[in-house]
């Protein structure tokens, strides 16, 4: 029989294969260093020293993992959480570290900007999908940095896999082609994705908004989710600079910082050189 892997070895393998996992460690109190390895798809391993403490910490850490948060939580020795139960008793401090699956970026349109954006997204830890309906453009050779290159129209991708997208993820539509842009945007709006950016000049944007309205885009709730034209107003010109402006906008939207998005300005996106 093969040796059971240690907790570290199991954690290592799960991190490397992008399986969501939490590591709970007692950092203060009795049993310092004791560990519990938790995951949504299997029973916990290890123990913090008391079955009830294990049960409560498992429950809490699964919720933290879902949210992608890491931090310290305090309990009674038997997992008590209400303040009255913690009077006159030692508390146990548990560091709950979440190893969530990497966030995803779906890029629609296999253009030069796509390669640059995929590169920057990889640096930031995204799992990158590139999708275009044109077989000659959507090739692995053009996008070796992407995790997945798909030849498809947008809608089937959202129908099949849209439920996988969440608040940490991003959809970037870079085609400029209404045949492809419109279904990609409409598809993205059906998901819980946290960021939707759409590339184009202000003229392209205005025309696209008309087509989106025709396609059924309704009120400001949906329009507000679109960052169009995509990116921060930093005067980016090259595909690489544009990729930085897009990723910087994604970060700023997540952190809620006030930064000049192109969407909220007016006038030419590229000033005359």
């Amino acid at each position: 029989m093969a040796d059971t892997p240690s907790l570290y070895e199991e954690l290592r393998d799960r991190i490397r294969s992008d399986q969501p996992t939490g590591l709970c460690t007692i950092i203060d109190g009795p049993n310092i260093g004791a560990k519990l390895l938790i995951a949504p798809d299997r029973a916990p391993r290890g123990t913090l020293g008391h079955p009830e403490l294990d049960r409560i910490v498992t429950r809490d850490s699964l919720a933290e993992l879902e949210a992608g948060r890491s931090g310290v939580r305090h309990y009674g020795p038997q997992g008590q959480t209400t303040p009255e139960d913690l009077i006159d008793t030692d508390t146990v401090s548990v560091f709950v570290e979440s190893f969530a699956a990497p966030p995803q970026m779906w890029i629609f349109g296999a253009v030069d900007f796509t390669a640059a954006l995929a590169k920057v997204a990889k640096v930031l830890g995204y799992r990158v999908l590139v999708c275009d309906a044109r077989e000659v453009f959507a090739t692995r050779r053009r996008f070796p940095m992407a995790d997945e290159v798909m030849v498809s129209w947008p809608m089937p991708v959202f129908v099949e896999r849209g439920a996988d997208l969440g608040p940490r993820d991003a959809v970037c539509v870079l085609t400029h082609d209404p045949k492809f842009d419109v279904p990609a945007v409409m598809g993205a709006l059906t998901t819980r994705v946290g960021y939707i950016g759409v590339m184009g000049s202000r003229t392209t944007h205005a025309k696209r908004m008309e087509r989106l309205t025709e396609a059924g885009l309704t009120g400001p709730n949906e329009t507000d989710r679109l960052m169009s034209p995509i990116g921060l107003d930093i005067g980016a010109r090259t595909p690489e600079e544009t990729a930085i402006s897009i990723c910087a906008e994604i970060i700023a939207r997540r952190t809620g910082r006030k930064t000049p998005s192109l969407r909220d300005g007016s006038g030419a996106i590229h000033s005359a050189r």
Binding site: I27, S70, G71, V72, F95, E97, S98
Partner: peptide, 13 residues
């Protein structure tokens, strides 16, 4: 890193 108070360069984890 398990916790930071105030300005800290790196997050827990």
């Amino acid at each position: 890193v398990v916790n930071i108070e105030g300005s800290g360069p790196r997050d827990p984890g």
